[in-house]
Amino acid sequence: MTSVLYDVPGPRAVLRNRILGVATVLVVLGAIAFIVYRFAESGQFSPSKWYIFTFSAVWEQILEALGNTLAAFALAAILSLVLGFALAIGRLSEHAWVRVPVTAVTELFRAVPVLVLMMLLYYGLPVIGIKMEPYWAVVIALMAYNGSVLAEVFRAGVESLPRGQKEAGYAIGLRKNGVMRLILLPQAIRAMLPVIVAQLVVTMKDTALGFIITYPELLYYAKLLSSQQGRPILQSAFIIGGIYIVMCLILSGIAKYLEIRTRHSPKLQALAADNAAVMHEGTDTEIIVAQKGAGKFDGTSTGA
């Protein structure tokens, strides 16, 4: 028995897959059990290791560090989206004097690691007499790197659309900015929304690099906690890592909600219908032009 995409496994293959599945689960459970055993043996579950987290002042400072992390992420995310749009439109320009410099800037920002950008802004600029606060060094570095990556995401989304949509927009008299704004960008953003959200999650996690330049975010405070009495290194990592996981899950949930909302949005459904009408009208126009060029147009032909 076969399927369109693959051969349906027979009894032996089913048995082999079940054995492999059970073996994989046992290996994973064994690894987890070993890690828990080593933690227990080294005293990582002892109350003295977690005692520091019983103080309300510690949680207040964790919340303050969380606020600093979210403040850097929020501004960096907004600026990254704006920069990504600007660079993507520049890369899609038909003018070489616009496209070439924008391409060079995009590739430069993509090639330089975020941490290197932060250190250049915070430690390098004072050499030439410019002092920058850690917050702005983190935000600008995240904006430059993630904006250049998002520029490629937007550009790929626009170029993945059928070429006929752009040509149909031109056929009914739209200018390039109208074609981009009304036809191409809405569809590209919907198609690339999962990738955009994934990059924003990377932006959120990269705020942790700010501790290198003394920005008081979550990882910076976790480092301070790990140096306290009892050295709760793993415990601090668990608490702070759990906060990062929750933030990423919330961001992914918001993205999923937006995806469902846009899929059922009446405005976007109307936009899709308008785009289909534009495609149909553009096809009719192309057929009429072709028939005129061949001398076969009699004024009654319509594209099928």
Rank of each mutant, 00 (worst) to 15 (best):
I254Y: 12
M192Q: 14
L258R: 07
A76I: 02
F55H: 13
P101F: 14
R110T: 04
Y145S: 06
Y244F: 15
A188H: 05
I233L: 14
P126L: 07
R99N: 12
R175P: 00
K267R: 13
Y37A: 11
A33L: 11
D284K: 09
A77W: 04
T103K: 06
G253N: 11
M1E: 00
I196D: 04
I239F: 07
I140F: 02
I35N: 06
F34C: 13
L120M: 13
V197S: 10
L249Y: 13
A156T: 10
L251K: 04
P162F: 08
G84D: 02
G299V: 09
F39M: 15
V202A: 07
G147H: 02
T69F: 09
S3D: 09
V127Y: 11
G124F: 14
A137L: 01
H280K: 12
A111R: 07
Y37M: 09
T103R: 11
L15F: 04
G43V: 08
A77F: 09
L209I: 08
W136Y: 12
V105I: 15
K223E: 03
K205M: 07
P101H: 11
I245P: 00
L63R: 11
G124Y: 13
M279N: 05
A77H: 08
L224T: 10
G157V: 09
T203E: 00
Y6N: 05
L92E: 03
L121P: 01
V202I: 07
G67A: 11
W136C: 05
P266T: 03
V139Y: 01
S236N: 06
S48M: 10
G164Y: 03
S148A: 15
L200G: 05
